[in-house]
Computed example of a mutant assay.
Amino acid sequence: MTATVNIPLHRIAHGRAGDKGNRLNVSVIAYTPEAWPILLREVTQERVLAMFEHRGASQVRRYVVDNLQALNFVIDDALEGGVNSALNLDTHGKTSSFHLLSMEVSMPAELATALGCTGDTS
């Protein structure tokens, strides 16, 4: 059995976020080709929805962009009504990519070492 470690997603990917009304759009892009299969396996619609449920998110759709080694998530009802009606300090959702990048992902320990990641680094 292969040993695995849990690391924060930001160790193997970066993100971008945007908004349109009460809909949040977050993209997660792998830093390396080796990280891409980890993103595909670990960063699911269900896990993303769970991360944004506290904001009232009702649905998540995941789009795979293979040629960019990226995932794009469209998250409904995550911006507390949108820019003009939310009391949230980040009404545009720009920092939401940082929230998603805090997700813990599991990967083979050998690959984590090869990519310079460790289980205890945040």
Rank of each mutant, 00 (worst) to 15 (best):
A13L: 06
H10V: 01
T32A: 14
E34Q: 15
E46F: 03
V26T: 14
V74E: 10
T113S: 13
T113N: 13
A35G: 13
L101D: 10
A30H: 00
A78F: 08
I7H: 07
P108K: 06
C117I: 11
P33W: 05
L87D: 09
Q69S: 10
R47D: 06
M1S: 02
G56Q: 08
R62V: 10
T32S: 15
D120M: 03
Y31Q: 06
V65L: 14
T2Q: 06
F73S: 09
P33L: 04
V48C: 11
P108V: 04
H54M: 00
A112P: 05
A78M: 07
A35Y: 00
I75E: 03
R16P: 04
W36Y: 15
L101I: 02
G15K: 10
N22Y: 09
I7N: 03
T95K: 03
T121R: 13
S96F: 13
W36P: 12
D77M: 03
L89M: 10
L40A: 01
S27L: 02
L79S: 04
S96K: 14
R62D: 09
A50F: 07
A78P: 05
V5N: 04
Q45G: 13
L89Y: 14
A50Q: 15
S58F: 04
D90H: 07
L87C: 00
N84Y: 12
N88F: 08
P108H: 01
R61F: 11
E53S: 06
T113W: 01
S106T: 15
G119K: 13
K94M: 09
Q59R: 15
V74M: 04
V26C: 10
A50T: 07
S85N: 02
V105D: 03
N72C: 11
T4M: 02
Y31C: 00
Y31L: 10
T44P: 10
G93S: 07
G119H: 08
F98S: 10
A57V: 11
R41N: 10
Q59M: 09
L49W: 11
D76S: 11
E42V: 12
K20R: 14
E34T: 02
R16N: 14
L79D: 00
E104D: 14
R23L: 12
L24R: 02
A30N: 09
Y31N: 08
D90P: 01
V105S: 00
N84V: 08
D66Y: 12
R23M: 15
T4G: 00
I7E: 02
E104T: 01
L111E: 06
A70Q: 10
V28C: 04
G93V: 09
S106Y: 01
L79K: 06
F73I: 12
A17C: 12
K20T: 13
F52H: 08
V60K: 12
H54V: 05
M103V: 08
P8L: 06
P33V: 01
D77F: 07
S122Y: 14
I12F: 08
Y63G: 05
D77H: 12
T121I: 11
E104C: 02
N25D: 03
H99P: 00
R62A: 15
A50N: 12
Q69Y: 08
H54D: 12
A86K: 08
N88H: 14
H14C: 05
L100Q: 13
R61I: 13
N84F: 13
R16H: 12
D120R: 05
V26Y: 11
R16E: 13
L111C: 01
